[in-house]
Design a protein around this nucleic acid. Structure first.
Length: 934
RNA sequence: GCGGGGGUGGCGGAGCGGUCAAACGCGUCAGACUCAAGAUCUGAUCCCUAGUGGGUUCGUCGGUUCAAAUCCGGCCCCCCGCACCA
């Protein structure tokens, strides 16, 4: 295909001419600063990622045509743990990872020999980042993004680190940075935090952290510590359960003596406790003993096989009235020789009232016919009771101060109360049993000295709500998601133990978390041209204070950095010129974190006028109805676009096939349809470039120009409103159909089309820039520079002519009628007679348009009042006034369309002839001539 | 569970109070071109009807209105997010 050639050609020319590298200007030309989040460089990007960047590029290009000085920069994100994990895995010869990356490399490397060497280099994480950054850069160029690459950086660079350090200094000054402890998923074996990616099946079956309440039961060996998710059930406890066959330990925990399972003691050790094991015992050793609960009651310790030593503490208190497992275990134990007598004295204590139950656990076990405590249906029974109790349960008078309260309201209250009594603590457990990809068990650890960003700090949220209300969010339906996110954001850890990025400035053991280091970096794009020559260690916070906030003075910054005072002032001026970031465009997936941080961090540091004014979003892209994923093997890398489809086809498809808030479905068949349209467009442009421009000679020429200007008007309005699909459908697809019609109707279509060809090219240049450049040059536009920088055409309203368009609609309507009649008749006519409506029918129509229902009373004034009444009534029924009907000279319009009618039907067309054997004349209505075929 | 978004023809999807039997595309059918296939072009594609007319449709059940795919309420179903993950 020829466009492969010209796409590369124009990309190179743009590059050489620096077309997309803007300068700070003093002129009145307004600036427009647009960003799309920098990609994470752990692998190849695919056409789904490309959708977002393409949309951003369309905006950037459109704004350029509209006279803005546009800054559209790009950088690369390498912060966080994924790239590090990849390197680690490759260094450890992880076959799966190595194969995955080999496949990635095959996308880019023709020379397969080189792949092993590159993989080898990936043992260094920086090489991974560097490699993919380089490739993504080329991918982006290959689809024609109008990016200013002179500002490219990555988030591991020392200059960037200094900038992020400054950001956190600011956070500290404002008081939003706080310190505390925090639970995370952890590998006990490697003493390392585990992210979703590190956990086996972590992506499909998420592991979350559950908070258990520890409750202490005092016995002669120390405290038996039970872990529960439902501390309020303590009031109904009747005994403790211990698994007789597993190992328990007696240990010193924070100065107290505790009895817990062997598994639990390891977990306690990483949850902030100081733990020392005193001795290890089989569970059965403790059976039959008595403990006292926090309410002062004496409870027996009994055996139960269902107790899992690896869930919670392996010590469970029994609530037989409400927990089916507990109830059934007691029933089972009644038959036991040793414990039977003790058990028979135990009565379930009902503490929660729910409709339909007296003693819920007993009734459900009996109803379901549970056999024993190994019965698998106990799980189901438990769920049912728990659910009912959570939503409808009310604590009864056995629950002291909590009686009468709803379960769902009191959990935290009970925890607080138990804590005050000194009878409880907190224990974290994973929501499911999980192992890391390396095979070690996943537990929960509590990190002390964790740094948080406190999103609830002071007036921050109030300020955010206020600003958000003023922001433009498009599509508007995503606004609610922002509002909700602002509400639920709480303290969020912002430093991690592991990962690439910027060291936490107040504690260098930590690394700034990767979402928190990419929220105000748009400012860095503005500064980077000025900072590149400065040694990073010279970039003290004072430097950024001046450049970004105007605090301090240029002389001091010049001294600190070694830059000249002029240069420093220039940098400050650049920032004042470009900021705020007029538009941030990305995917809705980021609303729940990145985008909201983006807004809030700006508000925390900058004056409100520099906070983001506008965010636009586009949905994802799927392929043939299915999500693209590595495992399905249906991913199309962005790199394949230029070879397989061509950049302009890809861009046109992505923009035209769905609105921003709708998923794009990449369907090969539909892509082919768009391709044919593009080919048609190119063919028209070729013809235009081979012809000389001619003047308007007839109505059909006027029609074409009217259509063009109308489309241009609609297109411009939609582009301005970010409705790109609509804009392109109008300016490309509909207009192509019009041109096709015009080709049939006009003797010399291309001479006339040449008049509008250049404007047409500019209006499509944001979407198909390469084709636009190519034909811009062919049509002689090149003398005035690149089409990418051409002025957007203005629709000429004076040329838009509804009357002419109506006439043409009329011709098409007549053709349709004739066609359907021929179809019904089943044979070709030799002659087609058309009869237009008589004058009085037009008068009737006009009367109804003017007087609506009132027109009916004028029936008498017509020659044939009965006929007139019927006609008037039908016009009223059809509410004809809503269309603002204008009278057409139908006979002469048909005469003007003689050529196409003849061509189409291969028959002579006769208008208003006296020959009317079927008496059709009377059937004619305005806009609907009667037809007789002969 | 909480929060958000949706359910339109054989399919993907526009439409979001009247010009709607519903854009555009895919698929299917017919015709043209071709030795033929493919591509391309032209047309048809809810049902009835020698035509501009009638009938039944937009998850489901109701309601508001002269008028509803479009507004309101109930119900059913699907998708997405819920934090330390980029």
């Amino acid at each position: 295909m020829k466009w492969k050639e010209y796409e590369a050609k124009w990309q190179q020319r743009w590059d050489e001419a620096g077309v997309f590298v803007p300068q700070v200007e003093d002129s009145k030309r307004p600036k427009f600063f647009v960003t799309v989040p920098y990609p994470y460089t752990s692998g190849a990007l695919h056409i789904g990622h490309g959708r977002t960047f393409t949309t951003g590029d369309v905006v950037a290009r459109f704004k350029r045509h509209r006279g803005f000085n546009v800054l559209f920069p790009m950088a690369f994100h390498i912060s966080g743990s994924p790239i590090l994990s990849i390197s680690d895995k490759i260094a450890h010869e992880d076959v799966k990872t190595i194969n995955l990356y080999k496949r990635y490399l095959e996308i880019y490397e023709k020379d397969l020999e080189k792949i092993d060497g590159i993989i080898e280099s990936f043992k260094d994480p920086e090489k991974v980042a560097e490699y993919f950054a380089g490739k993504i850069n080329l991918d982006f160029k290959s689809v024609g993004y109008s990016i200013d690459w002179t500002r490219q950086f990555d988030t591991g660079q020392p200059h960037y680190n200094k900038f992020i350090e400054w950001q956190f200094h600011k956070f500290k000054e404002t008081g939003i940075l706080v310190k505390g402890s925090h639970p995370i998923l952890w590998s006990l074996k490697n003493s390392q935090p585990l992210g979703e990616d590190d956990i086996s099946d972590g992506d499909v079956d998420k592991v979350s952290i559950s908070e258990f309440t520890l409750i202490k039961f005092e016995g002669e060996d120390g405290f038996f510590v039970a872990a529960t998710l439902r501390p309020e059930t303590l009031f109904g406890a009747t005994n403790l359960w211990i698994n007789p066959d597993v190992h328990y330990v007696v240990a010193d925990v924070n100065g107290e003596r505790w009895v817990v399972s062997e598994e639990a003691v390891g977990k306690l050790g990483v949850q902030g406790g100081s733990v020392k094991v005193v001795k290890k015992e089989r569970g059965r050793v403790f059976l039959g003993k008595t403990v006292s609960d926090p309410l002062g009651r004496q409870l027996p310790v009994l055996p139960a096989g269902f107790v899992d030593p690896d869930n919670g503490t392996g010590v469970v208190y029994s609530v037989p009235a409400h927990a089916p497992y507990d109830y059934q275990a007691l029933v089972d134990l009644k038959r036991d020789a040793k414990f039977g007598p003790v058990v028979s004295e135990i009565e379930p204590v009902v503490i929660i009232s729910i409709p339909g139950y007296e003693v819920p656990a007993r009734e459900i076990c009996e109803r379901m016919g549970i056999r024993d405590q190994r019965d698998s249906r106990l799980e189901e029974a438990t769920q049912e009771i728990y659910k009912a109790e959570f939503y409808t349960g009310v604590l009864n008078d056995k629950c002291e101060r909590f009686s009468g309260m709803l379960i769902q309201n009191i959990k935290d209250e009970v925890k607080k109360w138990l804590k005050q009594k000194g009878a409880s603590g907190v224990f974290y457990e994973t929501s499911r049993k999980a192992v890391s990809r390396g095979g070690d068990k996943v537990v929960v650890a509590v990190l002390d000295n964790q740094w948080f960003i406190d999103y609830n700090h002071d007036k921050w949220k109030a300020k955010t709500r206020k600003h958000l209300a003023k922001m433009v969010i498009l599509p508007e339906k995503f606004r609610k998601l922002f509002e909700n996110t602002v509400e639920w954001l709480d303290k969020r850890p912002c430093a991690r133990r592991r990962g690439l990025g910027t060291r936490f400035p107040f504690d260098k053991e930590w690394v700034i978390e990767s979402l928190s280091d990419s929220t105000i970096y748009m400012a860095f794009y503005v500064l980077i041209p000025y900072l590149q020559g400065v040694a990073p260690e010279k970039l003290k916070p004072e430097v950024f204070d001046f450049l970004l906030l105007g605090e301090g003075d240029a002389e001091k910054v010049a001294k600190l950095t070694g830059l000249s005072v002029e240069k420093v002032n220039e940098a400050r001026k650049a920032f004042e010129y470009w900021y705020p970031n007029d538009l941030r465009h990305t995917a809705p997936a980021h609303i729940g974190n990145h985008l909201t941080f983006f807004i809030m961090h700006h508000l925390a540091i900058f004056p409100e006028k520099l906070a983001p004014p506008c965010i636009t979003l586009n949905e994802m892209l799927i392929r043939e109805g299915a999500k693209m994923s590595k495992s399905k093997g249906n991913v199309i890398p962005l790199n394949h676009v230029k070879e397989k489809y061509g950049a302009d086809l890809y861009r046109m498809y992505v923009v035209s096939s769905a609105d921003l808030d709708t998923v794009v479905d990449w369907r090969e068949k539909d892509v082919g349809a768009v391709q044919r349209k593009l080919e048609k467009f190119v063919e028209i442009m070729d013809r235009c470039s081979e012809t000389t421009e001619r003047e308007v000679v007839n109505e059909i020429d006027r029609w074409m120009l009217s259509r063009f200007n109308r489309s241009l008007k609609v297109c411009t309005e939609n582009m301005e409103a970010f409705r790109f699909r609509e804009a392109v459908v109008e300016m490309f697809f509909k207009l192509l159909n019009d041109v096709r019609w015009f080709e049939r109707r006009s003797e010399e279509p291309y001479g006339l089309l040449r008049k509008i060809a250049k404007d047409w090219l500019v209006s499509l240049a944001p979407v198909i820039p390469h084709t636009a450049e190519e034909y811009w040059e062919k049509l002689g536009g090149g003398e005035s520079g690149f089409v990418s920088l051409a002025k957007w055409p203005e629709a000429n309203e004076k040329i838009i002519n509804s009357g002419i368009e109506k006439s043409e609609d009329f011709v098409q309507g007549v053709m349709e009628d004739i066609r359907s009649m021929i179809k019904m008749a089943g044979h070709q006519p030799g002659r087609i007679y058309l009869y237009t409506a008589e004058d009085w029918k037009w008068k009737a129509l006009e009367l109804v348009v003017k007087e609506k229902q009132g027109a009916l009373k004028h029936a008498r004034t017509f020659k044939d009042p009965a006929e007139a009444a019927k006609t008037l009534a039908s016009f009223v029924k059809n509410r004809v006034w809503e269309n603002g009907i204008e009278r057409l000279d139908e006979a002469s319009i048909i005469a003007g369309a003689e050529k196409i009618l003849k061509e189409e039907f291969g028959a002579e067309v006769v208008v208003n002839d006296n020959h009317d054997p079927m008496n059709k004349k009377g059937k004619a209505m305005p806009f609907r001539p009667a037809v007789y075929l002969e």
